[in-house]
Design a protein around this nucleic acid. Structure first.
Lengths: 219, 219
DNA sequence: TATGGAAATATTGTTGAACAATATTGACAT
DNA sequence: ATGTCAATATTGTTCAACAATATTTCCATA
């Protein structure tokens, strides 16, 4: 735990730290997280650790089995389908009612430019990050703190899925140009078309993800 | 804690119990929840209680101030506006893509009938409950476990707002007939119209809520 | 050899006490 | 009445303990 404190309660800091381990894939899906081992590793009490575990369980990143401990969630086809259902609802909805001058649009445009640059440089991790910024900005179009927070949770769960894939970052590249088209439509004041495009995008992404997951499961 | 166990961990049971106290108004907005007092009251350790508090804080029902304790969230105009933004996104979205034969539609229709009966009997609490069932069923149209769970959280927060009002239950009555119109449109295979109606409904409900909250704040 | 089961071990679930750090209260002097 | 400082209470976190439940080990037996 070398990062910034911010004076937050220990359990929250712990949860954040463990979350980064989860989404970076340092903790593998299915892995059991022993209370003793982790409280030693982070040099905190079991009680504090358990609070953090509970928070992450509520976020769907960990799974809790009575008297057996907590495990890293193993993403399933069902969860992928559900997650994309949520994304269609939130992202398409945000686009559909987007106001042409919303500040988040600048962020979207910037993220697209960034993604293109990273792709041309062959920096696939960078492409993934830019893509993430892009979609977060779309949610910001809806100007709702609660939706933004909810999307963060969904987003973290999705990254858990990516952890199962063999060459995950490569997945994002084909979508950079679709992002471009979408933000352009929003800039042109065509929110309905943008939403439709996004639906196509998400359906495609979902299929790709499911196919990749299927391959990964067989292995 | 006289209710059912279900073998869930203590913190979860505690959180559920406290949540019912919150939404039923037995714990007033702004009130401080002393760890000592509540661990005594529920006959649990401070550690377990703190886990429960953290869960409820994540749900937005409690607010945590460092070194000062947890307080029942005081709903603000801003939170009401945000909550209705979420509801428009989720409920209108669910209606727009509703499949005409979805089982949740029966639940909606039943809830409408129930609400009308309760209203005619002057049972305002019953009207409120029926209304809640109706809107939860709308979310179920989207067939997403995550959206359903998220809506529960939003719903609980909204009930916290109702706790601030003087005669809260009375608020629901005018909406029973709008519910009727909406479910009828869905049954007729007109999801877009249903969504539009719902938007009108929610805008009206939001204004009513804000006005009532304004009155309550002055007092 | 394989299998079933019982004892031994490890892990989680929950508690209570302890203590440092911070916030609140109260007494006192001005 | 007001500001200051000590006294008190509360939260933040840890630790040690123990019951309850899982897992493993080991042995007897078919």
């Amino acid at each position: 735990m070398t990062e910034d404190d911010e004076g937050l309660p220990l359990a929250d800091r712990l949860a954040r730290h463990i979350r980064t381990l989860l989404i970076s894939g340092e903790l593998a899906p299915g892995q059991r997280l022993s209370e003793a081992a982790f409280s030693e590793r982070f040099d905190v009490s079991r009680n504090s650790l358990r609070e953090a575990f509970r928070l992450l369980t509520k976020d769907g990143l960990l799974r809790h089995e009575a008297n057996r401990g907590v495990f890293v969630t193993v993403p399933s086809m069902a969860s992928v389908i559900d997650i994309y259902r949520v994304r269609r609802m939130l992202e398409c909805g945000a686009l559909r009612q987007a106001w042409q001058q919303h500040p988040a649009i600048r962020v979207m445009r910037q993220a697209v430019a960034d993604g293109q640059k990273k792709r041309d440089a062959g920096d696939w991790v960078g492409v993934g990050s830019a893509n993430m910024v892009f979609h977060t900005a779309i949610i910001d179009l809806s100007d709702s703190a609660r939706l933004t927070e909810f999307y963060e949770r969904i987003s973290a769960e999705l990254r858990l899925c990516f952890g199962l894939l063999n060459d995950p970052e490569h997945l994002h590249s084909p979508f950079v140009d679709m992002n471009d088209a979408i933000v352009t439509l929003v800039e042109q004041g065509k929110p309905a078309e943008a939403a439709t495009q996004m639906e196509t995008y998400l359906n495609l992404a979902e299929r790709t993800m499911l196919k990749a997951l299927e391959r990964a499961e067989q292995a």
